[in-house]
Amino acid sequence: MKAAVIVFPGSNCDRDMQVALRNSLGAEPLMVWHGDTELPQVDLIAVPGGFSYGDYLRCGAMASHSPIMREVVRRTEQGVLVLGVCNGFQILTEAGLLPGVLMRNAGLNFVCRDVHLRVERTDTPFTGHYSQGQVIRVPVAHHDGNYFADDATLDELEGEGRIAFRYCTPAGEITAAANPNGSQRNIAGIYNRRRTVLGMMPHPERLADPLLGGIDGKPMFDALVEALAA
């Protein structure tokens, strides 16, 4: 399996993603500059967190027009897996690979803390190492993570089983208090129709090392490695 991490001006979780992938993969992911127009043959493309283009204009809006994104879109059509985390999720929505938008947090403040997520399905290449309904703990760190889409889109996402994670209590209940940013229906991450593209605001790469306080993010990377090795 080969993985690539896209680096935009202002990306700042690119190295964190690189480390998490390296640890599960046992090999170095490629670091690909946003200005490149060609992407080597890879099985997984990670779009990392950060403040691409300083979040100017709108989070992810400018990065979604970077030269490399045309190639990312093309690979997506071919079924290559794409993982967008935080700013990466914002970029994927701006690029039209995922529906909806990420608005300013309901509380208006930047929020950095561990949250609990309920794993909504496990039959995807991203979540095969979790169990159905499992509650995992991973951090969020964002100012604009308030997922919004119109009701028809939300119903469609629900109906097609495209909600990947929801914010929940440690016991797995979906409550308003467990929602750090006001996201509709407590949505923390969603898939595209083929479930080959996952965008999520929480950072699985930040809790994939016991010394950092938890490893609930690691099964995602392990699952990807296994799914793609097969």
Partner: peptide
């Protein structure tokens, strides 16, 4: 205060 600061980016914050 500190939840408004990203205190984990760079993936090496052992003591928060």
């Amino acid at each position: 205060v500190w939840e408004q600061y990203d205190h984990m980016v760079m993936g090496d914050t052992v003591g928060r």
